[in-house]
Simulated scan of single mutants.
Amino acid sequence: MAMLPLLPMLLAGFVLVSVGVGLWLLPWMVTGTLRWADAERGRAAALLGEPHEPRRPAVPEGLVERWRWVATHREVRRVLRWVPRFLGGGMALGLFGVLCVGGMLGTVVTMVGWPLLPDDASMLGIRVGNWGLALVLGVAQFALLAALTRWVLPGFVRWQARDSLTALTPSAEERLAERVDELTESRADVLDAHGAELRRIERDLHDGTQARLVAIAMRLGVARDELPEDSGALGRLLAEAQEGAEDAMTELREVIRSMYPPILADRGLEGALTSVAAGSAVETDLELGDLGRLPAAVEAAAYFVVTEALTNVAKHSGAELARVRLARKEDRLVAEVWDGGVGGVDEGGGSGVVGIRRRVAALDGTVTVTSPAGGPTVVRAELPCGS
């Protein structure tokens, strides 16, 4: 009975939407309903002696986001389905309890005051005509109502508690879906942290380790220049050391480029891809949509997909034209590379597609390759970029 005011409140919120006030009010009323339902679930669990973990879904900020949350969140739908069941059962139980208690009071009044009542006063369907019959019928009816109140009514209460727990507790499939949603929501933060770490490592390697290797190579070169021409073994050792330092710099640059290309930090993804398209060995048309803010790890993966795919086009396809398209579709970045070459891509034959798949799969993305014999070839990668 405690939730009887809730249904009119919700209905009022829906009605007020038509005049604009409910647009702000209704999401808060739904939030209050969720908290109330969780309290009822706690009481039901305590009555049945079962553990209870509070469920307080995080409510997003902003009116539009809050309305989207009300319309799509599983917990909201579950609670709103439960409210009519709980109200109906609560009203029936309340009426049953009132009838039992009121019936016991009425029995006592009838039993002791039957001479003052109309001639048709009765108990258990039997007309009361004398004191003996009044006492027997009164005790029997009172005992019956007391038994209903003592044993039957608690059974109904426990049944309603069990029904509430069943209705409000998510199933194993729903818990799994909620966990997936939580991981999806947190993925953007993870990607941002990963991107920040990539930038830090790239900066440390570029400004620290690489600079030291350059200095070492230069000093070795100066040392070689200071040696006489007939320095023999010492000259050869210095030459080998200088070549080793230069090789190490080359390998380090490749590591930095594969991890987080410096051009991304300098120009961003759009500028970097524009440079790649301009420098491609095959004429390349570049189409970039509104990409918005992307995590650094997603930018690096998209850059790798495009550069590797264009390298494959130049090496294997024989195409004269390639097209690169990047677009953002809600929480996914779509990178697509098309070429009009001979097709028939062999993923196991050094085409680079395996590397693309690995790079994209590391971010829980997908890659599809369409390459019939005779072409064209389309490499399409979808990367999650936040929720």
Rank of each mutant, 00 (worst) to 15 (best):
A12C: 06
G13S: 11
G22F: 02
G22S: 04
L23I: 07
P27W: 04
W28T: 13
A44N: 00
L47H: 06
L48G: 12
P57R: 04
V70H: 01
R77C: 06
G88C: 05
G88S: 05
G90M: 08
P115I: 03
D119Y: 11
N130K: 11
W131N: 12
G132H: 12
G132F: 06
A134L: 06
L135F: 10
Q141N: 01
A146R: 05
T149R: 05
R150K: 11
P154L: 13
R162E: 12
L165G: 06
T166N: 12
E174K: 11
A177V: 12
E182P: 05
R187L: 11
V190L: 15
H194Q: 13
L205G: 04
H206Q: 13
Q210T: 04
G221D: 00
V222Y: 03
A223S: 08
R224D: 07
D225E: 07
S231M: 14
A233E: 03
L234R: 06
L234G: 08
L234F: 10
G244P: 02
A245L: 04
M249Q: 07
L269N: 11
E270V: 09
V282G: 01
V282D: 02
T284P: 05
G289L: 04
G292I: 15
L294T: 10
P295Y: 03
A297L: 03
V298G: 07
A302E: 00
A309R: 00
A309D: 00
L310M: 09
A314M: 04
A319T: 09
R325K: 12
E330N: 10
V334F: 03
V337N: 00
G341E: 04
V345K: 08
V353L: 07
R358N: 15
A361L: 14
A362R: 08
D364A: 15
P372A: 15
G374R: 08
P376K: 10
T377E: 01
T377S: 05
V378N: 01
